[in-house]
Simulated scan of single mutants.
Amino acid sequence: MIALALAAAAASPTPTVYAITRIGSDLAADQVVGVKRAGMMCMRNGVIRWSDLAAGHAMDQREAVQDALEDADIAVTPLGESAAADSKRVLRLRGVVRAASANLCARHWLGDSKALSGEIGVTIEWRAESRATATVERRHESVITRTIDAQHAAPAAALYRALLGDAARDLARWLSDPASAER
């Protein structure tokens, strides 16, 4: 009986734990990613830069990813900690924003930037790297777009956080798929 249990334990794969280390960007802060419009007819009123979308603390972005993975029952280390158990395979998880786009309108005639609606999108490349060798073991790309109606209008940074949450849920679905381990 003990031999069977030991054989089963040896045959089962080592559980993977993810450590979310970074959400970065290939985009320069002043890079134009879209057009801002204003007024009832949404006339051109300026540009949207990457810094308008990505405003906020890096820890907030990592927490959004952490929450989505935990909600999908994917094992993650607490933010700021490394996995203590040697019996677990730890992969560092990094996200890199490769592209962003926005075509947003502030319906108020003065162009209230706290109530933007329209189309917004982001492409994030996710990499799971071996903690021991820094080798990329798994790679996935999330391409997320949203159309925001006037009823759900919000500041640009809040719209980006919603996209990041969508991308993290896409990542969680991919990590949960056993076939993804082979990619």
Rank of each mutant, 00 (worst) to 15 (best):
D60V: 13
A58I: 10
A100E: 05
T123F: 02
I74W: 07
S113N: 09
E81R: 14
T77N: 08
A84W: 06
L93V: 06
A75C: 03
I120D: 02
A64P: 02
A75T: 09
V65M: 09
E129L: 15
G121W: 00
S51Y: 01
A84P: 03
L104A: 09
A55G: 06
A58V: 13
V76L: 09
G80M: 12
R94S: 13
R92F: 11
G118M: 04
W109V: 10
E119C: 01
A85V: 11
A99M: 03
A72L: 06
A54P: 01
W126V: 01
I120L: 10
L91E: 09
S117H: 12
Q66A: 04
L116C: 02
A85K: 11
L93F: 06
V76I: 14
A115E: 07
I74E: 10
R127L: 10
P78I: 05
H57I: 12
D73F: 08
R98A: 13
V122P: 00
V96N: 13
A55D: 08
A84S: 14
D67P: 00
T123H: 04
E81N: 08
E119K: 12
L110G: 09
I120C: 02
W50L: 04
A99F: 06
G111C: 08
L91F: 12
R62Q: 15
D73N: 15
A128M: 04
W126D: 02
V90I: 13
D86P: 08
K114I: 01
D86G: 14
L116P: 04
A102G: 07
G95L: 03
I124R: 01
K114S: 11
G95V: 02
S51W: 02
G80S: 13
V97A: 06
A115L: 11
V90L: 11
D73L: 12
L93H: 06
V90Q: 09
W126Y: 04
G118A: 03
R49I: 05
D52A: 07
H108A: 14
S113E: 12
G118S: 03
L110E: 08
G111I: 07
C105L: 10
H57V: 10
G118Y: 01
E129W: 02
V76C: 15
A84E: 15
L93Q: 10
D86Q: 13
E63S: 11
G56M: 04
Q61M: 14
R98K: 15
L110W: 13
L79H: 08
A58E: 15
G121C: 02
L110C: 02
G95P: 11
S87R: 12
D86I: 06
S51A: 14
G95C: 05
L53N: 05
A128W: 00
G80V: 12
L110N: 09
R62S: 10
A72G: 09
D71A: 15
W50E: 06
W109N: 07
I48D: 01
S82N: 14
V122E: 00
D71T: 09
C105F: 10
V65R: 00
G80H: 13
A72Y: 02
R127N: 11
G121M: 01
S117G: 05
D71S: 13
R49N: 09
W126P: 01
S87P: 00
D73S: 15
A54V: 07
V122N: 00
E63V: 13
A84V: 14
Q61D: 15
L79Q: 11
K88S: 05
V122R: 01
G80K: 10
D67L: 14
A85F: 08
N103M: 08
I120Y: 05
G95R: 04
A75V: 08
S87M: 03
